[in-house]
Amino acid sequence: MSHYEPPLISAHRVIGGRSYDFSRQVAVMAIVNRTPDSFHDRGRTFALAKAKEAVTAAAEAGADWIDIGGVPFAPGPEVSVAEELDRVLPVVQAAQGLAVVSVDTYRPEVAREAIRAGAGVVNDTSGLRDVRMAEAVAGTDATLVITHSLAAPRTAYPSPRYGDVVAEVAAFLRSRVALALEHGVRPEQIIVDPGPDLNKNTRHTLDITRRLPEIADIGHPLLAAVSNKDFIGETLDAGQGERLSGTLAAVVFCVLNGARIVRVHDVAATVDAVRMTEAMLGFREPAYLRHNI
């Protein structure tokens, strides 16, 4: 099967106490939001008990990582640092030992507390808009996800314009990686995410996905956060709740083109798709052999 193998910086990593070889392995990151206004689940796991149930279910479905968010990137009402901490820290604690724990936040104050509580990954969708985020991760064993976006979190950015969206996203990520390194983050702590649909329209996201190797060439493991996003809905004329097959196609395409972490809502189906893709690429042995043996 034709596929792209990115020139990885530190392919072998220990993240959240678990070892990964991203030259031959893909991590499935489950999404658990403690928010009332997330674009997909619309508050389904906002209640703490529901969030804890979702963490357990994601782990049982085979999630390698669990990404816990307390504030969406999209525009919405202000959420204080204290409220965000109240939302995410109990879920971080509940997820300990079940999977690598990630916290989706753009606030260094939240990142520091989450790392202290056991989070192994900080997923910064603002792309180091606040450089103190790099300082919060530097000197720890946590991994930092640096994401491309144009607007400040919770801020509208209508009709984004790019000359060459892929070149501009890659240049942004390279500059933010350099900034992180300048502030003490080690190369083996960094993951990059081109930010599908974040301040991008459907054509932009399709272009990024089609040319994903140009982003993967940055060299740090690449995270693909494509699950149930509007570029899938607009491409297929599919509403929320009708985008699983499109999501799985996008996930497999991204893996074939260099993604090594995929961030998703539908864990069990994605785990099957990713593990099957790994097997066809020669990365993984079958669970068992019986047919025609």
Score class of each variant (00 low, 15 high):
residue 87 R to T: 12
residue 79 V to A: 12
residue 78 E to C: 00
residue 28 V to E: 05
residue 51 A to K: 00
residue 31 I to F: 01
residue 27 A to C: 08
residue 69 G to P: 02
residue 47 A to M: 13
residue 76 G to A: 13
residue 45 T to V: 02
residue 67 D to C: 05
residue 60 E to R: 11
residue 64 D to Q: 04
residue 25 Q to H: 14
residue 56 T to Y: 07
residue 47 A to R: 14
residue 37 D to I: 02
residue 54 A to Q: 06
residue 88 V to I: 13
residue 24 R to K: 15
residue 35 T to Y: 03
residue 44 R to N: 08
residue 75 P to K: 06
residue 27 A to F: 05
residue 32 V to R: 07
residue 90 P to E: 07
residue 37 D to Y: 03
residue 40 H to E: 10
residue 45 T to L: 07
residue 49 A to L: 11
residue 61 A to I: 09
residue 44 R to D: 14
residue 75 P to G: 01
residue 50 K to V: 00
residue 56 T to P: 00
residue 41 D to A: 12
residue 88 V to C: 05
residue 87 R to F: 10
residue 55 V to H: 01
residue 85 L to E: 14
residue 24 R to H: 13
residue 80 S to H: 05
residue 23 S to Y: 06
residue 83 E to F: 07
residue 51 A to D: 03
residue 24 R to C: 12
residue 33 N to I: 08
residue 71 V to E: 13
residue 62 G to C: 08
residue 77 P to K: 14
residue 25 Q to A: 07
residue 70 G to C: 08
residue 82 A to G: 07
residue 22 F to I: 09
residue 79 V to I: 15
residue 68 I to N: 05
residue 69 G to K: 02
residue 72 P to F: 11
residue 27 A to H: 07
residue 35 T to G: 04
residue 49 A to S: 14
residue 26 V to G: 03
residue 60 E to F: 08
residue 37 D to V: 04
residue 59 A to E: 12
residue 42 R to Q: 15
residue 60 E to M: 11
residue 70 G to M: 11
residue 89 L to H: 00
residue 23 S to A: 15
residue 90 P to Q: 06
residue 72 P to V: 12
residue 90 P to G: 08
residue 28 V to G: 07
residue 45 T to G: 01
residue 48 L to H: 03
residue 61 A to Y: 07
residue 88 V to K: 04
residue 29 M to E: 03
residue 33 N to D: 06
residue 85 L to Q: 13
residue 60 E to I: 04
residue 32 V to Y: 02
residue 74 A to F: 11
residue 22 F to K: 03
residue 82 A to R: 09
residue 24 R to F: 06
residue 55 V to Y: 01
residue 34 R to Q: 11
residue 23 S to I: 13
residue 64 D to S: 12
residue 39 F to C: 09
residue 36 P to V: 13
residue 25 Q to G: 07
residue 39 F to Q: 03
residue 49 A to V: 14
residue 52 K to V: 15
residue 36 P to Y: 10
residue 25 Q to K: 04
residue 28 V to N: 03
residue 32 V to T: 08
residue 63 A to D: 06
residue 85 L to G: 04
residue 54 A to W: 01
residue 66 I to W: 01
residue 66 I to R: 00
residue 76 G to C: 06
residue 41 D to N: 08
residue 59 A to C: 10
residue 39 F to K: 04
residue 82 A to W: 00
residue 36 P to D: 14
residue 61 A to K: 02
residue 43 G to R: 02
residue 80 S to F: 09
residue 90 P to R: 08
residue 88 V to E: 06
residue 34 R to L: 12
residue 85 L to M: 12
residue 86 D to F: 00
residue 84 E to G: 07
residue 62 G to Q: 09
residue 86 D to K: 01
residue 28 V to L: 02
residue 52 K to I: 15
residue 59 A to M: 08
residue 65 W to P: 00
residue 26 V to R: 02
residue 56 T to N: 10
residue 25 Q to V: 00
residue 69 G to E: 10
residue 68 I to F: 09
residue 71 V to T: 14
residue 49 A to N: 13
residue 77 P to H: 15
residue 54 A to F: 02
residue 31 I to W: 05
residue 74 A to W: 05
residue 50 K to G: 02
residue 85 L to H: 05
residue 53 E to Q: 15
residue 75 P to F: 05
residue 43 G to A: 11
residue 60 E to N: 09
residue 72 P to I: 08
residue 29 M to S: 06
residue 53 E to S: 13
residue 51 A to R: 01
residue 76 G to E: 09
residue 72 P to S: 15
residue 44 R to F: 10
residue 78 E to M: 08
residue 71 V to L: 11
